[in-house]
Simulated scan of single mutants.
Amino acid sequence: MSNELTLTSDFVKVLKERRSVRHYDPHVKISRDELKEMLELALTAPSSSNLQPWRFLIIDDQELQEKLLPIANNQQQVRDASAVIAVLGDLKSYEQAEKIYNRTAEAGFMSEEIKNAMIQNSVRMYGGLAPERLHRINQFDAGLVSMQLMLVARAKGYDTVPMGGYNVEKFKEAFSVPETLEPALLIAIGKAAQPGHPSSRLTVDEVTYWNEFH
């Protein structure tokens, strides 16, 4: 494993050093093996009923990054980053329930009885939801895996920025996105050419209530 992770007290440092970086060194490329390694760690994120509805389109071809540029409002990081990762939600993710829960049972994490019940319940519940409702659930799960991916990238010495400012319909058309996949966000990843700007945060007391709103 390259750039071996040190995940002890260094995790606090990763959290505090992560920035939204918009200026990347265009000469730095991340290998597909390393991108896969980061995604593998990100995939440990939780999801609704463990259906893992996230799907990824990794755009690491320079011509395709140029194609994406106007669709993403000409944000320079789309061109200069090592890759742009599109995170999408699968409206048919419940069709993977049998595969997921079979593997869980085979690993000894649940009984056959519970496995069968989970498969049946997941297909019935999620299969009966309207696409708009499923998309909202998938958006939530996409946020979980995306944040995890950005932290993994920082732990490995890379930088990221999440992007919601792009034309979803044009993206779907330009990249032939299947109808069952709905884009959630784009993540640029690479080596910073300029550090991301530090920003202030509201305090815990300013955003937290205890037991009641007052």
Rank of each mutant, 00 (worst) to 15 (best):
residue 214 H to F: 10
residue 156 K to P: 01
residue 63 E to W: 11
residue 3 N to Q: 12
residue 58 I to T: 14
residue 194 Q to Y: 06
residue 171 F to Y: 15
residue 21 V to Y: 05
residue 117 A to T: 03
residue 208 T to F: 14
residue 135 H to M: 13
residue 189 I to C: 00
residue 41 L to I: 11
residue 119 I to W: 06
residue 105 A to T: 12
residue 41 L to S: 03
residue 101 Y to L: 04
residue 88 L to K: 00
residue 158 Y to P: 00
residue 88 L to T: 04
residue 114 I to T: 12
residue 51 L to G: 15
residue 5 L to P: 05
residue 21 V to M: 11
residue 34 E to I: 08
residue 153 A to H: 01
residue 56 F to D: 10
residue 133 R to M: 12
residue 40 E to S: 14
residue 86 A to T: 02
residue 41 L to C: 03
residue 166 Y to V: 02
residue 71 I to T: 04
residue 186 L to Q: 03
residue 198 P to D: 07
residue 129 L to R: 04
residue 75 Q to K: 01
residue 161 V to Y: 08
residue 205 D to R: 13
residue 34 E to M: 11
residue 49 S to N: 13
residue 190 G to A: 09
residue 121 N to S: 13
residue 176 S to I: 05
residue 206 E to N: 06
residue 156 K to C: 05
residue 188 A to T: 00
residue 82 S to C: 11
residue 58 I to N: 00
residue 210 W to T: 11
residue 142 A to P: 04
residue 76 Q to H: 15
residue 160 T to I: 09
residue 211 N to V: 04
residue 177 V to T: 15
residue 3 N to H: 13
residue 64 L to Q: 13
residue 206 E to M: 06
residue 147 M to H: 09
residue 167 N to M: 00
residue 166 Y to E: 02
residue 131 P to Y: 09
residue 126 Y to R: 00
residue 188 A to C: 04
residue 203 T to N: 13
residue 193 A to G: 01
residue 212 E to K: 12
residue 170 K to R: 14
residue 85 I to L: 01
residue 109 F to V: 07
residue 170 K to T: 05
residue 25 D to A: 05
residue 116 N to D: 07
residue 174 A to D: 00
residue 131 P to F: 09
residue 60 D to N: 11
residue 165 G to Q: 10
residue 144 L to W: 03
residue 24 Y to R: 09
residue 88 L to N: 04
residue 209 Y to L: 03
